[in-house]
Design a protein around this nucleic acid. Structure first.
Lengths: 137, 137
DNA sequence: GCCTTATAGTTACCTAGGTAATTAATTTCA
DNA sequence: TGAAATTAATTACCTAGGTAACTATAAGGC
């Protein structure tokens, strides 16, 4: 019965990686959950909170909190949409000007975490994860 | 730059699996974090909280909370050790008598989550995860 | 022996993410 | 058109896990 071990190892890996990312982002005043939102917004431009939830597979309430913190820090603004229920979220100029710094911080920590792990293994792992996840969702 | 995708996929997988386990355990009145403790205690017999933290790679405060809930539910007891700072934790008879039910619940949900994922892939994924984790810790 | 340091556990407080219930705006449909 | 159902976002409250500060016990150095 290998299932228990797979789940446990995956859980530990996930926590470890998140912790390391948070540690690296701390000097920048950001948390990993905030970075995830910023990263998506940088690529997509403007999204409703619902769209952000769908992209990141997160429920609405935690998304509301993460965005409100980003708004308070001045990194994100919420614009009312045609549909008045929606809030269109986008990065501020301040966030755009800092993006490359943040991107470097995250790239560096990620590369450090992967540095001893051969690229072929990375690709294989990624492929397996993606395949499994696709079956589950 | 594959790193961001690996981290994101792994994070999503971990959340999804935990959510499914919690859902399955709900009728039994248990949470996945409690099950993790019970599972270790069943195999090891009696452990101090420190040892439990080390086995599960969890900090002391969340372990205290999880154990206190298990104590309140009558599934775990804390015995003072030779070293009076320590608390030796072990399963109660009540927990032992229910263990096989819980074990079946978790096995079933785990197997369900893995049912479409070939066993060779499971083994490969587990191997890669374990290898990576070993490098990180 | 005594004082300092280390360790086990707890408490308080933080982020991350989940469900349930609520509100306001939009759709649907009879 | 007007009532009912749906949807986007929020609020309140829960578990999960992290750090910092604290308490009580144990271990070491003098």
């Amino acid at each position: 019965m290998i299932s228990h071990e797979i789940f446990h190892t995956l859980h530990q890996l996930s926590r470890h990686l998140t912790n390391k990312q948070n540690e690296a982002l701390k000097p920048a005043g950001l948390y990993s959950s905030q970075w995830a939102v910023i990263y998506v917004l940088k690529q997509k431009g403007s999204l409703t909170q619902k769209q952000l939830c769908d992209y990141l597979s997160v429920e609405a309430p935690p998304m509301t909190r993460t965005i409100q913190r980003l708004v308070k820090q001045g990194y994100v603004k919420q614009l009312p949409g045609q549909d008045k229920r929606e809030k269109h979220v986008q990065l501020t100029d301040e966030a755009l000007s800092q993006y490359s710094n943040w991107e470097k911080i995250v790239s560096d920590v990620n590369n450090g975490l992967l540095s001893q792990f051969p690229e072929s293994s990375q690709k294989e792992l990624f492929h397996l994860q993606k395949t499994w996840l696709k079956q589950l969702v």
